[in-house]
Amino acid sequence: MEQTPTAARARALTKVYGAGAAQVRALDAVDVDVERGRYTAVMGPSGSGKSTLMHCLAGLDSVTSGDVWLGEVELSRLADRELTRLRRDAVGFVFQSFNLLPTLTALENITLPIDIAGRRPDPAWLDVVIDTVGLRDRLRHRPSELSGGQQQRVACARALASRPQIVFADEPTGNLDSRSSAEVLGFLRRSVAEFGQTIVMVTHDPVAAAYADRVLFLADGQVVGELREPTPERVRERLAATDPASV
């Protein structure tokens, strides 16, 4: 696919849940550009629409109005079959929990999207990914035999294994202790630095957000700010400015 400065972009993206009195406007005409080869964090209080934004950008959820591009592909025009193929080939995911299939070994979980696509993994790249996450001696283990941090590293490896255009991570450290969190975040950071991976991460943890190149702040369904070269302190200040209750 042709290289463009933005890996994903949204224009006037609006997402409305429900109807009538129960209507909730989760996203309200949001414009976003995700820069290629960069690590973008999305922050905001609960209900700010950050998860919805990620779901819409990743093709997991349909939009009410507006346009979303992933690379050069306009998502709102795609049928389910094409969206599925796009997710399989161009997108990697890391979720907060329930990230791995309990019946598969760590290695099988890592190659799952490639297997489903009916392709063979690139062994050299797989080696690089496995060594980067540091799980070589755990490949034959099932998820139940791995610690939470190890499981999440397997999930990260899976997201990278098929060399996706973009990786979406939804609160990847939400269930982890601080040491495991640091491992996972460090790994994501390195994949950007070393492999030029594009990553979008939703988080509410200023420490996690500080690993990113750029932080977007959301409140009430709108982008309310942006911070480059973040540090935990600056993220906290900024959060306090948008939503005093959160700090």
């Binding site: 079959r81 599925t84 997710r87 399989r88 309990p102 799952l112 999207p113």
Partner: peptide, 16 residues
């Protein structure tokens, strides 16, 4: 259902 959701998210088609 969560595993199924995960499988769908990582690109498993309905048919699969």
């Amino acid at each position: 259902r969560r595993e199924i959701g995960l499988l769908r998210a990582v690109g498993t088609s309905r048919h699969q």
